[in-house]
């Protein structure tokens, strides 16, 4: 019974540099943590319940970031990076999970920008999944998951094995300090390459063409506040929403 947490496996738009012609340049060396990663790590620590917590990541993942938050070791596929095909990313992660003896529970962030990643990981593993989770705990031989969608809160029980995708409900409140980060550097990292896992070493899917969106920018009013609000009210009346 081993808990696995996947981290640094989703790209956040804030990390992208977008050029005037619509070209997108992503970080090539290290990805910043995704919006939900810290919440997934916190949930995974709870689920590991003092037992082993194995981190899995891809080539742009930062093992120190995860080790400082509770992973006991990290397995990284160093020559695979995140692309836009969530199933391809998930296939690599599933191969990494298969390397972890006794893995029966995988936790990861439920990325808004890669909504197919967690379910595709479940698909590649052949496990069920619980998505959009807020919190999870081990109960007996299974897990109990809480999730809130709109105005409905559900408690879901699931037998193992299962993939749980966590949505962060806030920012990280107490990130690890410098001492913890330094200690985390000493925790073991097992680097593999795709061929070690019988994965076909294919480049990540990227678009053949990009362009800026054609939608018109907002009509902005600035300058004197009285004048600006007057123009806004006039515009909203013409829209029929006042």
């Amino acid at each position: 019974m081993t808990t696995v947490v996947a981290f640094n496996v989703a790209r956040e738009p804030a990390a992208a540099r977008i050029l005037a012609d619509g070209s997108v340049i992503w970080p090539t060396r290290k990805l910043p943590p995704a919006e939900d990663d810290h919440a997934a790590l916190s949930a995974a620590v709870v689920l590991a319940d003092g037992g082993e917590l194995v981190g899995v990541t891809l080539g742009q993942g930062d093992p120190v970031w995860a080790a400082a938050r509770g992973t006991t070791r990290v397995l990284r596929i160093s020559d695979v990076v995140v692309g836009d095909d969530d199933s391809a990313t998930a296939a690599a992660l599933a191969a990494a999970v298969a390397e972890v003896d006794g893995a029966d529970l995988v936790v990861l962030g439920d990325s808004e920008h890669h909504p197919g990643l967690a379910p595709a990981l479940a698909g590649h593993l052949g496990w069920p999944c619980v998505l959009a989770a807020a919190a999870a705990a081990r109960v007996g031989e299974g897990v109990e998951v809480t999730r809130r969608i709109g105005g409905v809160e559900e408690t879901i029980s699931a037998r193992l094995p299962v993939v749980i995708a966590i949505v962060a409900e806030g920012e990280e409140t107490s990130p690890p300090g410098m001492k913890t980060m330094l200690t985390a550097r000493r925790l073991p990292v097992h680097d593999l390459v795709a061929t070690d896992l019988a994965l076909e070493p294919v480049p990540p899917l990227e678009p053949v063409q990009t362009r800026p969106p054609s939608s018109a920018a907002a009509r902005l009013f600035d300058g004197d506040p009285q004048q600006a609000v007057g123009e806004l009210i006039k515009a909203l009346r013409s829209e029929g929403v006042l």
């Binding site: 969530d86 199933s87 998930a90 197919g116 967690a118 479940a122 698909g123 998505l131 969608i149 899917l205």
Partner: peptide, 24 residues
């Protein structure tokens, strides 16, 4: 759509099952 967890779960299982590209 990606609106509900269930639709995403189906597409994840499918993409894995038939080697499809999964884009959002």
């Amino acid at each position: 759509t990606a609106l509900g967890p269930a639709s995403r779960a189906v597409l994840g299982a499918l993409a894995a099952g038939c080697g499809a590209t999964l884009l959002s």
